[in-house]
Simulated scan of single mutants.
Amino acid sequence: MVAKFIKFRVVEPEKQDWIRGYEAAARYQKREGDLEVPYEHLEGAYPLGRWLSDQRRALRAGQMDGKRAKDLETLGIVWDTADAQFAENLAAARAYFAEAGTLAAPRHATALDKPVGQWLTNIRKADGLGEDPVRAERRAEQLTAVDKEWNPAVLGWSVDWQRHHVVLKALLDDGALQASCPG
């Protein structure tokens, strides 16, 4: 922190807002261990969540100095929060699939403390994987790698039908139905 202080205040003087934002981010990161800051979060009186959002926007627009980007990366900023959130939810979907054998989860289903059922319901909607077609295709491929039938509507049937199909298949695979059926 001392080296950063000297760098910002003596060697490379910066705008006061940048310094306040960076220092607030450093305090948050030291206390929380990450920079996953909600947009509305205030660090003291400083609007840190909004400031970080502004920094992401500046980077995307090509308006951020490379040193600033590097300094924020050192603190652990996540530049694309949508992809980071998708990755967390995808991990929860994998955990759910490992247990249930399907991604046809009911809305109330959770995995890894994430509302995976509601998330899957949302991403099955139009533009649920994002408006960018390249990003949406990449996300669909990641979901298909977990469960090729993750979006039953595309295949022509409902999520409810998919759930029943998975249960029936499991019963057949286990031989439970064959053992209970007469001769």
Rank of each mutant, 00 (worst) to 15 (best):
Y39G: 06
W51F: 10
Q16T: 14
W51D: 00
L90R: 14
P47A: 03
A93G: 13
E73A: 11
R56V: 06
E40L: 02
Q16M: 09
R68C: 07
G62H: 05
L42K: 08
E23V: 07
L75R: 07
Y39W: 11
A61H: 09
G33L: 13
A82Y: 14
A92Y: 10
W18T: 02
G44P: 08
Y39V: 03
A45Q: 10
D34E: 07
E36I: 14
R57G: 09
D17T: 13
P13V: 10
Q16C: 09
W18P: 02
T74G: 05
E40D: 11
P38Y: 01
N89W: 07
Q29F: 02
E32M: 15
I19M: 12
E73L: 07
R50M: 07
K30L: 12
A84F: 07
W51V: 00
I19A: 07
A69P: 03
G66M: 13
L59M: 14
V10R: 12
A61C: 11
H41R: 15
G21R: 04
Q85G: 03
Q63S: 15
D71P: 00
R56W: 01
G66K: 11
W79M: 00
Q55K: 14
L35S: 08
L90M: 12
Q63M: 15
N89E: 15
Y39H: 09
P13M: 14
P47M: 04
R50G: 02
G76Y: 03
